[in-house]
Amino acid sequence: MGKRIAMIQGHPDGQTRHFCHALADEYAKGCEDGGHEVRRIEVARLEFPLLRTKEEFEHGVPSDSIKQAQDAIRWADHLVIVYPLWLGSMPALLKAFFEQVFRPGVAFEYQARGQMARKLFTGKSARIVVTMGMPALVYRWFFFAHSLKSVQRNILGFCGIGPTRTTLVGGIEGLNERQRATWLDRLRALGDAGR
């Protein structure tokens, strides 16, 4: 029996296709090959406001598109998150999406004072795919992949999601067609394996 996979396409440009979109498409094709079910979330096409207060975060009513994204994530066994590295981190729109979706009562639950929050997404795994202009080794070893670790620990891990695996596609502007095809093949194979 295949996995249930929620794919979050985090590129903020909803008008133009980018390599992030091609990577996500190949992963989804691999999922079909491997007998997995996929629900796709295109963050750039969703309508939602920025959260500005603790009150909004804890008690605000999410938009219908955010509720649908929450339902897809609850349903999934595995998440795949694809985004470009912008200014050393995820694009602001993707961060705003996570703030909307991973709310109390959905992704975690507050406990008595002094206790850790209860993780409501325990049992789910994830893969994060990040494209970037710099070489992936520079990001990982010189910059210590700080923003990626933040996503893994402070967003996904806080809600119980793990293990979280990563795929870093560096030097994106300089990739030739053969290199791009190799990356697309890798993502399709990961999708086939449900990883």
Rank of each mutant, 00 (worst) to 15 (best):
K29N: 07
L51T: 09
R45D: 13
P62W: 03
G30V: 11
S63P: 15
E47R: 06
G2V: 11
F48L: 04
E47L: 02
F57A: 15
Q15S: 13
P49V: 03
H21G: 10
A6T: 14
P12L: 00
G34H: 10
R17S: 13
L46A: 01
E42G: 07
C20E: 15
G2Q: 13
P62E: 02
E32M: 06
Q9P: 02
L23I: 08
E47A: 07
M1E: 08
F57V: 13
A24S: 15
E32D: 11
D33L: 13
E37P: 08
M1N: 10
F19D: 09
Q9R: 13
R52Y: 04
Q15W: 02
C20K: 00
E42A: 11
I5Q: 05
H11N: 15
R52S: 11
D25Q: 12
R40W: 03
H18I: 00
P49F: 03
C31N: 10
H18R: 15
S63I: 03
E47Q: 10
P62S: 05
E56C: 14
P12F: 00
T53Y: 09
E56N: 06
M7G: 08
H59A: 15
G35H: 06
K3A: 12
D25R: 11
A22Y: 02
G34R: 09
F19L: 13
K29D: 13
Q15N: 13
P12R: 02
P49K: 01
A44M: 01
G14F: 01
G14W: 02
R17Y: 03
T16D: 05
H21T: 06
H36L: 06
I41A: 01
K29Q: 14
C20Y: 00
L46I: 01
H18S: 12
V38R: 08
G14E: 04
L50M: 11
E56R: 12
L50I: 14
L51V: 09
G14V: 04
R45T: 07
V38N: 04
H21F: 02
V38W: 07
Q15E: 14
K3R: 15
S63N: 01
A44S: 14
C31D: 05
A28M: 09
G14S: 01
Y27G: 10
E58F: 13
H59C: 07
R4W: 03
I41V: 09
E32P: 02
L46H: 05
V61R: 12
C20F: 02
H21N: 12
G10Q: 02
I41E: 04
A22M: 09
F19A: 05
R52C: 07
Y27A: 13
C20D: 13
E32Y: 05
E47P: 00
A28S: 12
V43T: 00
G14R: 04
E55Q: 13
C20N: 15
L51K: 07
V38E: 03
V38M: 08
A6I: 11
A44W: 00
A24N: 06
R52N: 15
G2Y: 13
V61P: 07
I5N: 10
E58K: 07
G34I: 09
L50C: 04
A44Y: 00
D13Q: 01
P12H: 03
H21Q: 10
A44C: 01
Q15Y: 05
H18T: 12
P12N: 02
E55I: 08
